[in-house]
Design a protein around this nucleic acid. Structure first.
Length: 435
RNA sequence: GGGGAGAUACCCAAGCGGCCAACGGGGGCAGACUGUAAAUCUGCUGGCUCACGCCUUCGUAGGUUCGAAUCCUGCUCUCCCCA
């Protein structure tokens, strides 16, 4: 056998890879042979509905990552045009349309994020980013319905679940047309980029098959579809949300610390599935981590591995280190002494993603009753009533020590001369800075 | 165009003249147990004081009444049925 310097010299079973990772929901007959017989181009579309992707998009991003690692060329499509139409799939109501400026801004931000996951400079199979606005901006309505619409019957379009489910509540012609617009993306990519595969979540199956159908009818091309299962959590709640809402890939929206914590907090069942999906570890490595975790579940090595891997991939090594340091300090044996040993810079680094407030030295010198500090002074808790409730629950800690409602916070409580750490329960922190 | 039903706190959903800050469920938060997991149990979940009490709140604007989320009127919106 010829020596192989780079795994990308060879195409290796992408579909098999998806299978063991639990990422394969549906696929069209013949895909596996098609992909295994040479380097192929495949794409996934991303909706520019916000200026950042979130962890829910991560499944699709990882699909492209695995695709590239298998030796194929991934194409990420940002839906500048489709974003203007609105996909009815899985939506109960008509969507609001974004204006063009917002879409442009969102596309640029999403592109920057995708560049962190995919290799756009690989000499053999570089990733590519396209925007369907580029081929739709000069497409006239008449041309579209003559060239594209002509090939698909309304009967065919109505049979799609995304349309059927909305027939009762109603959907606009615009949303109805969505599958054709997306289908034409595939046609265009097939023609101009040699793209023969579209991937996506299982809710995209209908849209994708409209695309393969169009390709077949318009120029007798070869095209395939593969979808991933919809990601769920073991407890049935929606994946990707946390107390504060969505978990974003943008560090400004979700701090790397919170991002790391999100993954660290996944349940055992979920973590075992997620490590298959969101890391590039080999099957042996995955099995080993899961086995290690089973042997000593309290170590939570599985969650740690998962969180570290994704955080580093998303935010980089330095941010991961900072998140680890913050985690160690906040959840470790961390006592007031540990905290007091930090430099001012360390304080600010560790608490980067934690809400903060400035409090004048003078009021601390006078002493602030804890209830006042929690609500009026810092707005850590939304009202005095909530502060008092929390105190009654025994959930408030100052500098990692539980306090009662009679506690008065003074200058003596300042650590490193400047900081006080407030805490509600185990996971909610607030940093007071004396100024 | 005609007829009917409805709008209650984050969501669902009771209440139909005073005992309603408003049953119950979900969600959320916290405590216990743990492993910053899951499951379970307990408490809290409008604001101010927290002890009574007070203030704002039941689509919206008025009205009746000692007193209304509950009755009357106008308005807005939603849903269903018939044409």
């Amino acid at each position: 056998m010829a020596p192989c310097h780079d795994h990308r010299d060879m195409v290796n079973g992408f579909i098999a890879e998806l299978r063991w990772r639990g990422l394969l929901q549906d696929s069209m007959p013949g895909v596996e042979e098609h992909l295994n017989s040479g380097m192929r181009n495949g794409y996934i579309g991303f909706d520019p509905t916000a200026d950042s992707l979130h962890v829910g998009n991560l499944v699709q991003i990882m699909m492209l990552v695995h695709f590239q690692r298998s030796g194929h060329r991934p194409i990420a499509l940002v839906g500048g045009a489709t974003g203007m139409v609105g996909d009815p799939s899985g939506k109960k109501a008509e969507r609001n349309l974004l204006d063009e400026d917002a879409l442009r801004h969102n596309q640029a931000c999403i592109k920057a994020q995708l560049e962190r996951f995919l290799d756009f400079n690989d000499p053999k199979n570089p990733a590519e980013l396209v925007n369907n606005y580029d081929w739709f901006k000069d497409m006239s309505f008449l041309r579209f319905i003559r060239e594209v619409g002509k090939h698909i019957t309304v009967n065919y379009m109505m049979a799609k679940d995304s349309v059927k489910n909305r027939l009762e509540s109603g959907l606009s012609f615009t949303e109805f047309s969505y599958q054709l617009v997306q289908g034409y993306d595939f046609v265009w990519l097939n023609r101009n980029k040699g793209c023969s595969l579209q991937m996506g979540g299982s809710d995209q199956w209908g849209n994708i098959t409209t695309g393969t159908e169009l390709i077949r009818r318009m120029h007798d091309g070869e095209a395939y579809a593969v979808t991933t299962p919809l990601l769920t959590k073991a407890d049935g709640t929606k994946f990707g949300k946390s107390e504060g809402g969505n978990i974003w890939l943008d560090a400004e929206r979700t701090s790397p610390y919170k991002f790391y914590q999100f993954w660290l907090n996944t349940s055992d069942d979920d973590a075992a599935r997620f490590i298959h999906i969101f890391t590039t570890l080999s099957k042996d490595e995955v099995d080993a981590v899961i086995a290690e975790h089973k042997a000593a579940p309290h170590q939570r090595s599985l969650q740690k591995k998962l969180a570290a891997d994704i955080t580093e991939r998303t935010h980089g090594k330095a941010e991961l280190e900072a998140a680890l340091q913050a985690t160690g300090i906040l959840f470790g044996q961390g006592t007031a002494e540990v905290l007091g040993a930090l430099s001012e810079k360390q304080w600010l680094d560790v608490f980067d993603g934690v809400p903060q407030a400035d409090v004048p030295h003078s009021s601390l010198a006078a002493g602030i009753p804890i209830a006042d500090l929690l609500s009026d002074t810092t707005a850590f808790l939304s009202s005095r009533g909530e502060a008092k409730r929390a105190l009654k629950e025994g959930s408030i800690a100052v500098n990692k020590a539980k306090v009662g409602d009679d506690r008065v916070v003074k200058t003596d409580d300042l650590l490193s001369g400047k900081f006080i750490l407030l805490q509600r329960g185990k996971k909610n922190y607030f940093l007071v800075k004396a100024v």
